[in-house]
Design a protein around this nucleic acid. Structure first.
Lengths: 116, 116
DNA sequence: AAATATACTTTGCAATACAAGGTACTGAAA
DNA sequence: TTTCAGTACCTTGTATTGCAAAGTATATTT
C-alpha cells in the first residue's frame, strides 16, 4: 500500500467535480483545464481527462465548440450545459456532506487543515 | 448519469480514510463501524466494508482480535497498527490538499458549505 | 430440533484513474 | 518540397474499488 495510490483513489469522483467547478467559471480546452487544475494542486494527465470530458459531453453535462488557435491545431472549448449547472449543484451538496462526515469523524484528531 | 453514482464515486478512497479516522478513536467491529459511519452520514454496506477491512489488515494497517459477545457469535475487533497510524497522517495531508483544491476552484461559486 | 438473529465472507459486475501509445493538424526549418 | 517540432486530441489495456447478492458459521430462543 503506497500513499500515491491512496491519493489517487481519493481523487476518484472528485475529479469530475473539480472539472465542473472549473468550467463553471468559463469555457476551457483540455490543456487549459490541466493547467488550471495544476494551479489548484491537482495533477491530471491527458489519458484521464479526455475520456472524462467525452463522458460528460455524452451525458449532456458539457458541450463544446471548436475554436481556431493562432498557434497549432484548433481546440475544443468545453462549457457547462444547463444540465451541467444543475448537476454541479448536486455535487456541491455531495461534497458538503462528505466534508461534514470527515469533520465529524475527525473529532479528536490533532490535525488542522493546512492553508497553503 | 445519476447523482447516486457520482456520490458513490466521490466516496471511493474517502471510505478508507473515514474508517481509519474512526478506528483511530478506538477498536470496533464491522457492525459498529457501519453504525458509526451512518451517524456521520456515510452509508456503507457489508459487501463494501468487509473486503476493505481485510485489505487494510493484509496491508498491515489494521490488526484485529476476536472478542466474545454476550449476544451472538464472536466479533472481530479491528484497531490501527503503528503503520496504520502513520498512514492515517498521510491521508490527513491528502485530504487537506483536496479540500484546499476544491476551495480554490470554488471561488466564485455561490454555494456555502452547510453546517448540518 | 428448528427458527431467528448476529456476524463474517465470497463472487461477479460496473465505474474510473492512469500509463502508454497513437492520430492529426500547423508552421517553420532544411 | 520535405522534414521536423509543437500542439491538441483520442484509444487501449490494466488495476483498483464500491456494491449487490448470495453464502457460511455461530449463538440464542422457541
Amino acid at each position: 500500500m503506497n500513499t500515491e495510490n491512496a491519493k489517487s483513489q481519493m481523487r476518484k469522483g472528485m475529479l469530475e467535480y473539480c472539472i465542473l467547478l472549473l468550467l463553471h467559471k468559463g469555457p476551457a480546452y483540455a490543456s487549459d483545464i490541466i493547467q488550471q487544475l495544476k494551479e489548484a494542486q491537482l495533477i491530471v494527465v491527458e489519458g484521464t481527462l479526455y475520456p472524462l470530458l467525452t463522458r460528460l459531453k455524452n451525458d449532456r453535462l458539457l458541450k463544446y465548440e471548436w475554436q481556431e488557435s493562432t498557434q497549432g491545431p484548433p481546440r475544443k472549448y468545453y462549457a457547462l450545459t444547463l444540465d451541467g449547472e444543475e448537476f454541479l449543484r448536486h455535487l456541491d451538496s455531495a461534497w458538503n456532506e462528505l466534508t461534514n462526515t470527515v469533520s465529524i469523524l475527525r473529532n479528536g484528531i490533532a490535525t488542522e487543515p493546512t492553508l497553503s
